[in-house]
Design a protein around this nucleic acid. Structure first.
Length: 277
DNA sequence: CGGCATGTTGCGCA
DNA sequence: TTGCGCAACATGCC
């Protein structure tokens, strides 16, 4: 489940689980996820390698290996990593299984992905999909002038679509864009090129706000003992870390939230407190 | 059965 | 060359 905060959370886990460790073995038969390599070649190239470090840029991860090669990871819509306890049953939808050895201890790390839109891309050098990403709001910050320059060229784009453009800002997806624009009180349908400096400052602030909150929430549910909380629809909703995504009432003004489709994605906004530019 | 889902890419066209 | 608009990808779940 991957936008910037989920991917950053994943990165931290992988650092704990794999950084400095050796990949003793890999098992997969999923040609789609490891393409363009065939599964056999993917397994061969990774076996025996040590993981030097793990970086993130937007929704992409890059694991540096001790032979200079790198494993780029994108979680797609449903990808995730899980560390398995000894003897633990392999999760449903496991597509790739890593045997990770650190000292004398060996553990399995599973790449799980029901929908199989994710990628594990092994390469010798940085790939274009990585290098062409825009600045990462969390690690690079947001340069309002640079952002304004990029938005000026998107004449037919709404601000919401532009924020989700990975070459403009890396890592912002549907939810984070929705939440940030709500925080900034800007109608998501506003033309990207119509944003003032003050608007962009508010958006930058809104993004920092929603990314930080989502990240904190992920860290919180980390060592909670599974799900002993009730699971009704209402409880799920109330427990949602998001302010308007997936909700029907604006928590700021009480108005009914509206929904439109922008860039092919369902977009929630408050018609009362988010104003069009 | 219909509809929806936190994402990216490839293609044709201007 | 760049931006735009959309279909396609694959699968689960309500």
């Amino acid at each position: 489940m991957p936008e910037l905060p989920e991917v950053e959370h994943t990165r931290k886990n992988l650092v704990r689980w794999m950084q400095g460790a050796r990949i003793a073995g890999v098992r997969t038969s999923d040609a789609r996820i490891v393409r363009p390599l065939r599964p056999a070649a993917f397994v061969r190239a990774l076996a025996g390698r040590r993981v030097v470090g793990i970086e993130r840029r937007g929704k992409w991860l890059k694991a540096m290996l001790d032979d200079g090669r790198r494993l780029f990871v994108h979680l797609g819509m449903t990808g995730s990593f899980e560390r398995l306890d000894e003897g633990q049953h392999e999760p449903r939808f496991t597509r790739v299984l890593f045997d990770v050895v650190r000292g004398a201890r060996s553990r399995n790390v599973a790449y799980v992905d029901s929908r199989r839109w994710g990628r594990l891309l092994l390469a010798d050098v940085d790939v274009p999909t990585w290098t062409s990403l825009g600045p990462d709001p969390l690690t690079d910050g947001i340069d309002v002038d640079a952002l304004a320059a990029k938005l000026a060229r998107r004449k037919r784009r709404t601000i919401k679509e532009a924020l989700m453009d990975q070459s403009i800002l890396a890592g912002v997806g549907n939810i984070q864009a929705i939440e940030a624009l709500w925080k900034a009180r800007i109608d998501p349908r506003s033309p990207a090129s119509a944003m003032s400096r003050a608007d962009l400052q508010a958006i930058a602030k809104g993004l920092r706000w929603t990314i930080t909150r989502t990240l904190a929430d992920l860290a919180k549910e980390e060592d909670r003992p599974a799900k002993l909380l009730s699971q009704s629809r209402e409880d799920e909703r109330a427990a949602s870390p998001f302010r308007i995504y997936g909700r029907t009432v604006c928590p700021r003004c009480g108005s009914a939230l509206a929904r439109v489709i922008l860039g092919g994605r369902t977009t929630t906004f408050c018609p009362t407190c988010q104003r069009r530019r």
